[in-house]
Design a protein around this nucleic acid. Structure first.
Lengths: 295, 295
DNA sequence: ACAATCTATTCCATAACGGAATAGATTGAT
DNA sequence: ATCAATCTATTCCGTTATGGAATAGATTGT
């Protein structure tokens, strides 16, 4: 029996559903199902009545519930107690792979400079790993896009924003426009970020909003491949403006969209969870820096 | 963080040593070391001061200790609470691979007959797995040999006993003796159970007691291989009398040892742990059966 | 009957675990 | 001082556990 299983159990009880809980926990439904089954096997009891449209706690599950809550309370008290003993305040930050493009690396360096005693650990992960890592306490803070983010479960602090733009080759008919409407792109070939990435979803949803399904000619995780194909006029792409500008490709032209589609880069942490000392340091540092640069 | 790590931590504190704790827990020292390191990493603190001859709880470790104890208390209360909800009293029994030879299968069948509502689960495992499985609560009860068993940590109930005997081919010079002393075997070739099995240890220790190191010509886990080799006069073996008799090999002769080396088959459970209802059923059933057959 | 929506299962790749052997450090005995 | 003994950590490697994608199987509302 481990903490994870208990957290999973409590979330299912809260949501009254495996699938809903699995989404909140940012894990797959199959994984959740298996974890609960293994917990049930270990305890020798069945926790949920499933099978019908609605799941229900069994009698044994109802007996287990207060114990599970007690476990988590004990755990949280323990964490609070141990915090004081951490030799160095430590801080695990995770970010989607755009920190260079949005100039976040600079802030990180400045922070390390000002607070050398805080052991800052930075990882880059894809969005879905960022979310599950935040949810299970693996990371203290995360840099990510606020699109599709549940504003109720996270506290957000905006770091910068960006907007979706059309990127075409210099020789493309659209290259000398200063504004393009999405519905003009109905028949275009799109080169896109891979399905499952947030930018892909943002772009595809924007197209659907405009009334058409984009014809995706090629999808890649590597921005260089995408820009290369656009340069060679294999198609066009929808991309965040600051990201494309960061790459400085003179053979490409960026044209703003008439319908604004924005994406905020935010610093997020799960609402309701107490921040570690190191995380508080970092958050207040970032807020200071943001105010400075805005004035 | 999981229950196992907490149990490990508490055992180390109790023993004041990793190695001692690893023996009590029936796991390897390396495994224990790694589990504690992973716990320390997760908590972000160091629990023990090691490096010198003696380990010591760090300040953080001392803070963690009461929380760890609270966890285990919560767990035990939970188990007690859930016991009442187990739809069927269940019972996990484990045995070293000799239940047929010692007629234990008969008792198991009789129990299933008398108490069909108890869900009896039986597994056969090697001795070291039996011990670690008992220690970590995976099994309720175990049939095993009492040799090398720490009588302080287990409650034992003798089921039957057996004695080590010499097994030789009918044509071997020893075949018509009715008693052999161990020191007569100094120059013999031994075919033995694999190193690591309890019977191997019993036999080798007996030889050493008699002042010589047995020359082990071949070791196997399969009794058939051993008996086959003895039959073909490749060597002799030391084996438990009832085990060899069970196999009824007319080409082999069993000669008792002058120095008695006995092994009791006992039904064991960790001292101090409350037995499950099913386990109490089974234990009292076995005690009744034993009394019956003794009278 | 069918689409939608549950949980369970299967398949498969990756990560965690566990033991044996060994390293590296320290102590006590000679 | 050297050596044997005794610690914990590390490495190596095979086994098990975990997690996600796809799919099955069951149920309900339309």
């Amino acid at each position: 029996m481990n903490k994870k299983q208990i957290q999973y159990f409590l979330k299912i009880v809260e949501m009254d559903s495996f699938s809903a809980a699995s989404e909140e926990l940012y894990i797959s439904q199959s994984s959740l199902s298996k974890q609960i089954m293994s917990l049930e096997k270990e305890l020798g009891i069945i926790l949920f009545d499933r099978g019908k449209r609605q799941i229900k706690l069994t009698q044994a599950g109802k007996t287990f519930l207060p114990h599970a809550q007690a476990f988590l309370r004990t755990y949280q008290m323990m964490i609070a107690d141990l915090e004081l003993h951490q030799d160095t305040p430590s801080l695990a930050v995770v970010a989607i792979p755009v920190i260079a493009q949005y100039g976040i690396t600079g802030y990180l360096a400045a922070f390390r400079n000002q607070f050398p005693h805080v052991k800052l650990n930075l990882e880059e992960r894809e969005a879905h790993e960022v979310l599950s890592g935040l949810a299970n306490g693996q990371y203290d803070l995360a840099f990510l896009r606020d699109n599709y983010l549940d504003k109720k479960t996270f506290d957000l602090f905006e770091v910068t924003d960006d907007k979706l733009s059309v990127v075409v080759s210099k020789n493309h008919p659209f290259a000398n426009r200063d504004l393009i409407s999405l519905h003009e792109l109905t028949t275009e070939n799109f080169i896109m970020f891979d399905k499952g990435t947030v930018v892909h979803e943002i772009a595809v949803d924007a197209c659907r909003e405009a009334g058409f399904e984009p014809r995706i000619f090629y999808a890649s995780l590597r921005i260089e491949s995408i820009l290369g194909l656009v340069t060679s006029q294999s198609g066009i792409t929808l991309m965040m403006e600051k990201v494309i500008n960061y790459h400085k490709r003179p053979e490409l032209t960026v044209v703003p969209l008439k319908e604004p589609v924005t994406s905020r880069i935010v610093l997020a942490h799960p609402r309701g969870r107490k921040l570690s000392h190191g995380a508080e340091f970092f958050l207040s540092f970032m807020k200071r820096e943001m105010n400075r640069s805005h004035s």
